[in-house]
Amino acid sequence: MIWIRRFAVAFLGLVFALGLAADWVAPAPYARQFRAEPNAPPSREFPLGLDGLGRDRFSRLLQGTRISLLLAPAAALIAISVALLIGGSAGFLGGWWDHAAMRVTDLFLSLPWLFLFLTARAMLPLNVAPSASIVITFAMMGLLGWASSARVIRSAVPELLSSEFALYARACGCAEPRIWRRHLLPHLRVLLTAQFWILIPVFILGEASLGLLGLGVAEPLPSWGNLIRELESVPALAEYWVLAPVLLLAAVMICFQLVKTGRGVQTF
């Protein structure tokens, strides 16, 4: 099954590359409105046709791909960092801090994300440039989406601390920071990488869900979320080309799963 994984990696690489090269590959600026012909079907000039406001769907898909695929890993990185800080310290320090950290984690796990987003969005300043709004959206996802990873890390750290190599290092007089740096973190790396790969599709889908509610990336910037939203108003069976963002999202999610599974991450 290695070839499937290779194919998945190659596909993801291609999609990433297209996203990065969006400014050069896209036939038209993503925000430009060709108002004379809104909802135009695919043509040589506009391979996926024009949306309801006369914007080129293909250009917007490329730009949206860049946004979703670059910022979701960034958000995952934030979440993993927070998870390591909270989960790692809870597992290491134990006692009241462990109890407190895990209760906070439980709280974050039980809170309805959507309402947190609604509340947080309502509190943000209004005059935020669309580019800043994307960063804020993904940063918020990163800052709110660490809890499940923190639990996993919290349960792994005590095991590592009581492992033979850690005991031996301690017996040899290694200081705790050195044990962390030289022994624990390298062992945690596999776990952290796995969590990172798990979180990326979660955040891409999270942004897509927010976009469906009109609360994700601000117009006129496209994202997979607000591109998928167009399906609400277009007969997808008759105008099948509007399904392109959904198909791309599905393909990317499948590829992430394949890459992740190939790295030894179990999916339940």
Partner: peptide, 13 residues
Amino acid sequence: LNIVTLDFPSLIE
């Protein structure tokens, strides 16, 4: 012009 979409109760508030 920066477009901000808010849930209805927040907007009314």
